[in-house]
Structure formats: structure tokens, C-alpha cells
Nucleic acid binder design. Structure first.
Lengths: 202, 202
DNA sequence: GTTATTTTGTACTGAACGGTATTTATTGCC
DNA sequence: GGCAATAAATACCGTTCAGTACAAAATAAC
């Protein structure tokens, strides 16, 4: 924990508190999360929240960015670390489903697709973040497929861009169904089928 | 407009007011929609709203049901009316994109996936509605594909259930991107590619 | 031990919220 | 015209909201 030289020491770490805020927004959405909800979950009081994060709105944007850089990009990281196309898609979807069904309570899904999307109208920056996140993921997946093509693990006819888009579509399908309450087991059981729809049979 | 025999006549129709409420919830979400927003858009005052729809929560559930029975199921209806598989999928996606990019303003998308999903935690009935809607759509699409198989318009190897799921995944991808602000033209231009991913080449 | 500095903790503010009591207006029936 | 019935319209209620003022506490420097 970084401390100043003088003055009363801080009792919390910015990143830990931000992660807690992510959980609150993920569960209740932006408008559904009150400052009481947030401060209680983050373990800090209101003045600390305001001095550290600004207002509720900028805390929200920080939380979305933290999610995007962490949990939100974990599936893409798993994809990139895999050795072959089928494993890459399978790892992508497995990490995805695990993150979207992580909670013991109901209603997890994706913070971006299931919660932040609601606020794309009232907070323009959110719309931009949604678009940028999707675009970035699409490009990374496309490049990953292109790499596999160069390695001859995918045929030359394989359309990397279209398949990257399809894989993201599948991601959004899982996000919706996780949020709707469908259990992890059911979704995991579908992954093989989805892999087959993205990667042509051997 | 159905009127009572006695008493002051109503100045609004329930369905019209409900459709207006749908628009508000679709734009701002449940928690982001105030009663002032709702009554203003619906053209009625608070007591009328409460006597007709109960409270905000039950108005919300009514609005979701109305959306599901109307706009939300329009793509499936278009699918069912088509004469061949490619046209069915194409019509499904075309109607979908048109509905999700209907507004001149930003942030349309799907009321269920882009807005209602947020409230699946705080209002349990919403989670159930999301799940039931997806299940119903999946079954109808699956039966449609099966019909095309019987008509020999699709090969026996065609997996109707898996393809129905994939088509719904694509729907959720479009919903996300519409909500993120991607324009109708871009999405329409992608439909042919998506059709090819659902229906095998001739 | 005093001072300067930083953060915590509590209490508070005006505004907006969902919901309702009450009054007024408009009809059909006698 | 008077009465009963229904709905509209306004004004209001207590609560919760996001945001802040202010004081108490904890550290380093001297």
C-alpha cells in the first residue's frame, strides 16, 4: 500500500476498493447501486470515496475500465495462450462461463453486456467503452486465428474475421443466459458444441 | 377504446400507455426511469398509472411482457413466415436489426438483453422472463429448422437445436452492438455473413 | 510536545424518489 | 336536476438519494 510521508494513513487500497465497486455495479447496475451499497461493500466512507474516485459516475467508469482490463479480458488471454484453435476457443469459452457464473447468488453474466449496456444512453462514455471493448476483442481473436492459419492449424479458407465475430456472438449468448440464471453446468456442457461451430471439423 | 357505462371516461388506452412505458424502460432501464419520466411519456398522471398498472415494478413486468409479445417476437414471426432456410434466417436478422436500431437517438438494442438483464438480480421474475423468452425462441426456431429438414430444404445432418442456439447467439451479438451505438447500415451489411454461418452453403 | 498534514468518521443538506390522499371534473341513470 | 360512479388533476407524504461540511484521529517533522 503506497503511503504518504505525513498525515493519517489510508486504511484501504484503491484497487481493492475498486474491485468491490465492480461487484456492486455487476449485481445491481449503475442506477440500482446506491452510495450506501457502494461504501459498505468497499469498506470505506463517503468522503474517502469522493476524494479517491470523484463522484459516482467516474467511479462507475473506473469500475468498468477495471473490469475490462481484468475479468473482462481473461477469456481473450486464455485464447491467446492456447496451442491450437480448438483449445483456444474452448479455453475462451470456459473462462468466460466461469466468470459469468462465478457467484453463488443469481444474476451474474457480463458486467458490460448485462449491466453497463443499460446506461449507454444516459452516459455516452459507456457506449464508447462497449464499442471499443468489442472491437479490441474482435481484433485480438482475429489475429489469433490468423496466427493459427500461418501455422497451418487452420485452412486458408478459414475466415478469421467472421469467426472472431461469431465467437463474440456466442460470448454474448452465454452472457445473457448466465444473467437469466442458467447454471454453470448447463453452459459448460454446451461448450464443445460451440467450439464445433467456430472451428471446422478435423 | 373500451369505456365503462358510468363515470368519467378514460383519456388513454392501456396498451398505448404501456407501449410508451416500454420506450422509457428501453431507453433508461428500470432504475433509471423515474415516475416523472414514465407519466410524462405515457401521457397520464400518477394516480392513473397506479390504478391501471399497480406500482412501478408491476408496470415494468407488464412492459417486458408487452415487449416480448410484440417487438421482441417479431424476428421469430418473420422467421416462421419465410419459405426457405436462408430467407428465414435473413428475415429474422433483418427484422431484429431494424428493431434494435429503430431509434434516431443512440442506445437502442434489445430491451431484454440490454436493459432488463440488469434487473435480473433485484427482481427475480425478470430472470425467469429472460430465461423463458430465450427458451421459447429457441424451440420455435428449432421447430422451424426441423420443418425445413422435412421439406428437404436442409440436409438430415443439420442440427436444428444447435443452429437455433447459434442464431440466438448472433441475435445477442447484434443487440450488444446496437446498444453500443453501431449503426444500422453496418449491422445490415453483416447479415449475409451471419446467414452463411447458420445455413450451410448450397 | 507542538505543528502541519492527511484521512477517517459522522452528521447533515437540498433534491429527487416512489407512492397516496384529496379534490375536482365528467359521465350515465333516475 | 340530483345522485352515484369513475377518472383526472393537484398537491402532498415520508424516504432515499448523491454529495458535502465539519470535526476527530493518526501520522511525520521539528
Amino acid at each position: 500500500m503506497v503511503q504518504n510521508k505525513v498525515g493519517r494513513p489510508k486504511k484501504f487500497e484503491r484497487e481493492v476498493a475498486l474491485d468491490a465497486a465492480v461487484e456492486v455495479f455487476w449485481a445491481k447496475g449503475y442506477d440500482g447501486s446506491s452510495l450506501d451499497d457502494l461504501t459498505k461493500a468497499m469498506g470505506i466512507n463517503r468522503p474517502s470515496l469522493y476524494s479517491t474516485f470523484g463522484d459516482k459516475r467516474s467511479l462507475y467508469l473506473d469500475a468498468l475500465a477495471a473490469y475490462g482490463a481484468g475479468i473482462g479480458s481473461a477469456p481473450v488471454v486464455a485464447f491467446d495462450e492456447a496451442a491450437d484453435p480448438r483449445e483456444a476457443v474452448s479455453a475462451f469459452l470456459t473462462v468466460l462461463v466461469e466468470n459469468q457464473t462465478r457467484s453463488g447468488d443469481r444474476a451474474q453474466g457480463c458486467l458490460m453486456a448485462s449491466c453497463a449496456a443499460t446506461t449507454a444512453g444516459e452516459i455516452p462514455e459507456v457506449g464508447d467503452m462497449l464499442a471499443i471493448g468489442a472491437k479490441a476483442a474482435s481484433i485480438i481473436l482475429e489475429r489469433g486465428f490468423e496466427k493459427f492459419k500461418q501455422e497451418k492449424q487452420l485452412p486458408a479458407s478459414f475466415s478469421s474475421k467472421a469467426k472472431a465475430g461469431l465467437l463474440l456472438d456466442i460470448m454474448h449468448g452465454f452472457a445473457y443466459r448466465s444473467r437469466a440464471g442458467e447454471g454453470r453446468k448447463n453452459l459448460i456442457a454446451e461448450i464443445e458444441e460451440k467450439v464445433g461451430q467456430v472451428i471446422p471439423a478435423l
